[in-house]
Structure formats: structure tokens, C-alpha cells
Amino acid sequence: MNKDSIEQCADVLYGAIKSQSTVKPLTETHPDISIDDAYSISLRIVEKRVADGERIVGKKIGVTSKAVMNMLKVGQPDFGFLTDKMVYSQGQDMPISEQLIQARAEGELAFILKKDLCGPGITSADVLAATDYVMPCIEVVDSRIEDWRIKIEDTVADNASCGLLLLGDSAVDPREVDMSTCGMVVEKNGAIISTGAGAAVMGSPVNAVAWLANTLGEYGIALKAGEVILSGSMVPLEPVQAGDHLRVSIGGVGSASVRFV
């Protein structure tokens, strides 16, 4: 894709975010789109958001589970950017009806960094050394592509389908928890809907963060001290709407709960 098409796609998607509307898959309107094109679009949207006053506070990793990789026919995850506008904390309601289009919730570990991580060459030991603490997190993903009819290029361009996120009630030193075996229980409106464990995310959420640092290194981007890194869902995505209540608990870490309005 040429620069003009990338700019045009970025405008279309950013417009969709702001107006809470959906667009046709870019892979249909621009069949020649490559993954690199998609990341270029995503980066342009972030630049526009920053120009409009948002602040980058972290990054997210998506497509970390085998099920979603198979669905999108890819062998690796993707990433997106988190801005201050997306972040909620335990105790706050999350206004998905006025901010999102087709919300789906997932549960994951958020890593809060105390040192920069810049690939290539980042190992899981580097990730642990750079992690200040981990927190339970509910991420609500959203797609600006109609009916979630996404291929990998669509979700990459659309900021890895990022929506809003909520950080939970505890922060735990990474040396206190085995992030590969820690269990997760998700309750929606009081009923247990799914369980999982850290290993569902690329063997361990730590591996996912290392992958992100190494992949972003190729684009000259670092994970920075103080940033929030979402490591990817341990459980299947769950559609949510205003009025729903969701609770995610993680063994040895804590829980996050939210009311959607």
C-alpha cells in the first residue's frame, strides 16, 4: 500500500473509533494490505490520538491463544497501544455503551514495568527483572470492523482490537507467583463461565511480554519503565453489554471486577 492509502485507512479507522461505527474489513477494501501496512496504519492512528491529547501508557499483546491463532490462521500474536483514555481502575464502572461498539471481555495479567525493555535479545529472565509487579486485569476488546469479520491485517491495523481495560485490586511481585500455572476464573453476572491458566498464553504470560519486546524492537520501539503491558487472555472472549457484571480472579494474584454501563 502507498502512503496515501495508509493515511486514508488510518483516518477511516480513527473516525470509526470516534463515531462508534464500523467499517468494512480493510482486507476487502484493500486486498493488497500487508501486515507491515497494517502496523503502519496502527502507528498513524496512535500518532493522531497523541496529537489529539491522549498519552501512551502501555502496550497490549493480542492473538496469544492457539484458538485465536487458528481462527485468524496466523502463527504469532499481534500488538496495539494503550492510551490513558482506555484505562479504568477497580471500583469504576466501565462505560462501554458510550465508548465501544461490539465489546468482548477477556481476563489477563497486566505487567507494570520498572525498567525499559528493548528487543532484540529480550529473554523471559529480562522480562522478570524489568517487572515491578503484575496485576489482574479485565480487557474489553472491540472491533471497528463490522461483525468482527477480521483477518490478522484488519485487527493489527485496528490497534489489535483494543477497547478499554480495568486494573484490579492487587499488585504482586513477580517472584511471588508462578505465572505459567496461576489459574483464572471468570464469572459473569454471578455464574462461572470459564477457567484457564497462565500457560494458555504462549506457555506463560512472561513469554508473551518477551515476544512483544523483541517484536517492537524491530520497529525501534521500547517497552518503557512505568508502562502497563497487557499480556493476552487466558480464557475465551466473552461478549458483554451494559448491565453486565464481570469478575476475573487469578490464583496468587487477586481479582478484578467491573460493572458495564
Binding site: I192, T195, G203, M234, G251
Partner: peptide, 12 residues
Amino acid sequence: VVETGAGAAVLG
């Protein structure tokens, strides 16, 4: 890795 889960999967 073929399966993951947590204790609550058994009757809560």
C-alpha cells in the same frame, strides 16, 4: 499445552 483450567471449573 493442550488444556488449562482452574479449580472453580468443578462445581464452583
